[in-house]
Design a protein around this nucleic acid. Structure first.
Length: 607
DNA sequence: GTAGGGTTAG
């Protein structure tokens, strides 16, 4: 609609013919059915029109109409605020509410619940608390909508569930939404146990169960990895006849996937009465985590079943290609993304950066990154991980500083990326500087993983004693990954005593850590303590476990060949070994003496 | 003529 036309509607005098005709038609219909004739109300009409603009996502048009309206009442203001929140324009909604407060018009319960949703969207606890105060001041209390919105806001923005619980406890009436909001509040902040506790209370009090309550309860089970509870709820869902409710069944499918029960998930998928794109995406994402090639197979079936992949599908498929390191498959998927016009999607671009890097093509990874007009924290993290993994530590550090300059606040994960990049490039002092910045400037408390990165940073550079001192200074008990990092450094830089200590600590925490036994036995061997060595190897045999073999692979045309150390059975292995011998000969010719000191004894010989 | 909670990726 042109702006001229729009203005003519908003001025109301005269009412445009098209709207007059529609109203006439309504009036005639009402007269025919003996219903009372509604008086012509321009304000209602304009609000309706605004609503239809908003439903079509025409926010600018809706706002223009709103601005032109001469006498706006609370409903008009609330409709516009609500329109903004629905389209995720939370700051616009808040500004408009602020404008409204400057007028004589008082907000009502509808306004408040919408504004609280905007506060939630902005993650602004202080704004939400302010609205809470205003609601009390304006006497807007006892509205279940406002109370539920308050709980939702406090649950999402608050540091804990305390405030949400307080509202919940003081509720005069609790409806289905109140319960769901509380369970979701706990679950979304990672406290599935808390969520299930509320769900149990709900069952005890015989509150009304609906599809929403079931799907959030299943989600709570998934978040704590409780297959047993999840299955119980699944049974209840079947008893209640909700097998055709897609949000519920998709959540159950996701539960089986995330609990690692892929065969159950697959069976359930085939039994599902209805399937939609989310169903397919859930299964593809589920397989991507444990069996990427199966995930690609399911993806290949989608089309014949009449489903077209979307951004969610492609992110999982790209992750599968990345984990399998099959570049040409990833390139084909990239082609599919471009064909569907999805290449402007930031999340997909982030997944592409990751895929190209993991498939060994750092150039295309960088190309995708450099062509982006918008970048978020995940984008920067992805490119830093890519550079770090390819040995471009200095470039990763430059990226980090550039990211901060662009106004993006780093989080724990991006610090891990930059620390890891520093570690692999030997940039120890830079890494330590970032570690300090992280704690000092960004108030990020280091966890086991971060400590693991710093121990690795120091350890790789040979500063093993310092790494051990850092472990001793940790404010909590180091886990096996931290000891594992130290162990690796001790092995590399020949610190048998500290190595023994690290291996023992790691084995205390994870007695089946075969790698630690292996390393310990190697240390004994290097010291010539063959008795201890034999003891270790015997223990390993007794455990009946094997260290997972490091596997490498190479893609030649359309086939991926994988091989392990000492492989004698692989494809064209004689030819490969021949080339290798030739290379070693050339190396020796140019004066290079290869380091073939056998510090690590082959596990295959003893198991 | 204005209001609510649950499903997939990073």
């Amino acid at each position: 609609m042109s702006s001229k036309k729009l203005l003519s509607i908003t001025h109301f005098h005269p009412i445009p013919p098209i709207i007059r005709n529609s109203l006439q038609l309504v009036q005639n219909t009402c007269t025919q059915s003996n219903a009372p004739v509604q008086p012509l109300c321009p304000s209602h009409l304009a609000t309706n029109l605004m609503k239809s603009f908003l439903q079509k996502g025409l926010i600018g048009e809706a706002r223009a109409l709103f601005d032109e309206m001469p006498d706006k009442d609370v409903v008009t203001w609330t409709a516009m605020i609500s329109g903004y929140t629905h389209c995720n324009y939370h700051t616009h909604a808040w500004s408009l509410f602020y404008e409204m407060l400057k007028t004589e018009i008082d907000p009502n319960a509808y306004t408040m619940s919408n504004v609280l949703k905007a506060c939630k969207g902005m993650n602004r606890l202080a704004f939400g608390a302010l609205v809470h105060g205003m609601a009390i001041k304006h006497g807007i209390q006892g509205s279940i909508y406002v109370d539920n919105a308050l709980m939702d806001m406090y649950a999402t923005c608050g540091a804990s569930m305390d405030k949400a619980c307080m509202v919940f406890l003081h509720l005069k009436e609790r409806n289905a939404v109140s319960w769901t909001t509380m369970i979701a509040g706990y679950t979304h902040r990672g406290d599935g146990h808390g969520g299930l506790q509320i769900f149990r209370q709900m069952l005890r009090e015989e509150a009304e169960l609906n599809p929403y309550s079931f799907s959030i309860a299943v989600r709570a089970c998934t978040s704590i990895g409780s297959l047993a509870f999840g299955q119980q709820i699944h049974t209840a869902v079947t008893k209640c006849g909700l097998e055709s409710n897609l949000p519920v069944t998709n959540t159950i499918l996701d539960m089986y996937c995330r609990c690692g029960c892929l065969s159950e998930a697959n069976q359930y998928f085939h039994e599902m009465i209805h399937k939609d794109l989310i169903t397919w995406n859930t299964l593809i994402a589920g397989y991507e985590r444990s069996d990427p090639s199966e995930s690609l197979y399911i993806f290949s079936l989608m089309d014949s079943e009449g489903f077209s992949p979307n951004c969610f599908t492609f992110t999982s498929v790209l992750a599968a290609c990345a984990n399998l390191a099959i570049l040409n498959c990833g390139q084909q998927v990239h082609g599919g993304i471009i064909c569907r016009g999805l290449n402007r999607n930031l999340e997909l671009s982030n997944a592409l950066i990751d895929m190209y890097a993991k498939c060994g093509n750092i150039n295309d990874s960088h190309k995708v990154f450099s062509e982006l007009s918008e970048r978020n924290l995940v984008t920067w993290t992805s490119i830093m991980i890519a550079y770090g993994a390819h040995g471009y530590g200095k470039e990763a550090v430059v990226m980090f500083d550039e990211m901060v300059r662009s106004g993006i606040r780093p989080d724990r994960i991006v610090f891990m990326a930059v620390l890891s990049a520093c570690s692999h490039a030997g940039l120890v002092d830079e890494g330590l500087r970032y570690f300090k910045t992280m704690m000092g400037d960004y108030s990020i408390t280091p966890d086991q993983e971060i400590y693991g990165c710093v121990v690795d940073l120091l350890g790789r550079a040979g500063r093993v004693e310092e790494a051990y001192q850092l472990i001793q200074s940790m404010p909590f008990k180091p886990d096996e990954s931290v000891w594992g990092a130290l162990l690796g450094a001790c092995k590399e830089h020949r610190h048998p005593n500290l190595g023994k200590l690290a291996a023992e600590r790691a084995l205390d925490l994870r007695p089946n850590m075969v790698g630690a036994y292996l390393m310990l036995s190697n240390i004994y061997a290097s010291e010539g303590k063959w008795g201890e060595f034999a003891k270790m190897r015997k223990m390993m045999r007794g455990m009946g476990s094997k260290k997972e073999v490091g596997r490498s692979w190479i893609q030649v045309r359309d086939h991926v060949y994988s091989f392990v150390v000492g492989d004698r059975t692989g494809h064209q292995v004689k030819f490969v070994n021949g080339v290798l011998e030739l290379l070693i000969w050339h190396m020796e010719e140019t004066g290079y003496i290869p380091d073939i000191d056998c510090f690590e004894y082959d596990l295959e010989d003893v198991t």
